[in-house]
Design a protein around this nucleic acid. Sequence first.
DNA 1: AATCGTTATATTTGGTAGGGTATAACGAAA
DNA 2: TTTCGTTATACCCTACCAAATATAACGATT
Lengths: 112, 112
Amino acid sequence: MGYKIKSRIWIESENNVLLGEGRVHLLKAINDTGSLSKAAKSLNISYKKAWQLLDSVNKSAKKPVTINSIGGKGGGGAELTEYGKSLIKAFDEINKNCWAFLDEQLSKIEQL
Amino acid sequence: MGYKIKSRIWIESENNVLLGEGRVHLLKAINDTGSLSKAAKSLNISYKKAWQLLDSVNKSAKKPVTINSIGGKGGGGAELTEYGKSLIKAFDEINKNCWAFLDEQLSKIEQL
DNA sequence: AATCGTTATATTTGGTAGGGTATAACGAAA
DNA sequence: TTTCGTTATACCCTACCAAATATAACGATT
């Protein structure tokens, strides 16, 4: 008893990562803040890292996940597309299902 | 189309890792070779890393996973206990089941 | 007691992923 | 045309982790 089973899942498209937990966190933060730089701050990661993550997400997705605007009112910003929002939702669902599935499987170890 | 879902699972006991894919590979190699140093060579990892992995496995397991002998015929060696063998088997099973489960879940992303 | 190939461990060396910093480009609004 | 806070990108630099190296300890066999 006392064992825990943990997991990391991610989705790839031809050797680029589309979505993982970090990327999903970032997308949620973008949705909350309306900008990539604010999202980076709220997650305590550098803007550079956040930008690299978001860039790779948008490059490997079939449709745009965010719309980024440079300049203009407030300097610009980033917001999720409907596709982006649905991706987050689907990923979270899969992740939760996976946890539940694995928790049940763990008994195979504990009963040894 | 074209998306792949990948996963890493591991089992912890009070914040130490008991088993993960790397550790399972190592245990299998120990089983095949009869020694930790040979196992490390066959996996192209340093002996040190292999030793650290094995040490942490044995420290976090309830019962010994390997029996290591120093000195003696052939200098010593390491071999899996029955408990160790059953751990490997259970982990592999869980992992395979997880892959199958996730592959089926992936449709949630692909149909978006 | 000498040999051997291990396990076990400390110390040093090196490669690289990531952070820090700087700056260009941008466009709406005043 | 100036200001502003963004997005976007290049460059250096360092902190960390992993690898390499060295060496002690060990015990069956001869």
